[in-house]
Amino acid sequence: MKSVYEYFLRDLKKWLRGRVFVLTALIMPAAWLVFVGMALPTRFTDNYVGFITPGILVMTMLFSSFQGGSLMIFDKVLGFMNKFLALPSPRESILFGKIAFITFRGLLQATVILALAVLLGVRLPGIAELVFIYLTLGVFGVLGAATATTIALKVDDHDGYAAVNSMISMPLFFASSALMPYRDMPEWLRVLASMNPVSFATDTVRSMFSGTIEIGGIAVLAVLGLIVLGVSTYMFRQATV
């Protein structure tokens, strides 16, 4: 699996050398936390920043993963996939490299959010809970990145991907427990939200913040992740240009 690392390194280097993108990638989710957490007129709970921090963390992973799908679109449109698919290294390492980079980048962004949240007065949980928060975000990131990259493999161009992206990631976010507690949701939303992987991740992270380590959510996400990884691996092995 050395080739996974090589693909990861390639994307990482390219990202770090486009400095502006690094900056915007870190600022964008921070802006969400400040605007949504501080400035939104409706407040469902007393400590709303504390309440939505887990939601914004998961949102950051979600949006970052789906945005990461465009890396695959670039590689396809610019002809890199033609070269990579003809190499003897296992084709799924292209996929795993992308997942590794996208998830890594998402976790970096999440760390910035976490630091900002602390500045805004959110109390960090203990070290064990913190490790589990990262684990949850990581598993969720892998799930998202694998889904996004595989969709991108099948979509023709940037416009097509942008459409799919907004059609999936926005509804997933808004129909989840990220922004409001279940008790304040209308019935139909509660049903949707309770089946939404974004909610599984958010609820899990939220429980970690309140000091209870709850791994049911991680388990569900991990199972989903494995299924998607299996399907994606197969699709990369069969890929044609």
Binding site: K13, K14, R17, G18, L78, G79, F80, N82
Partner: peptide, 8 residues
């Protein structure tokens, strides 16, 4: 089609 990473 040429495909090279110009940032590398």
């Amino acid at each position: 089609e040429m495909a090279l990473d110009i940032k590398l």
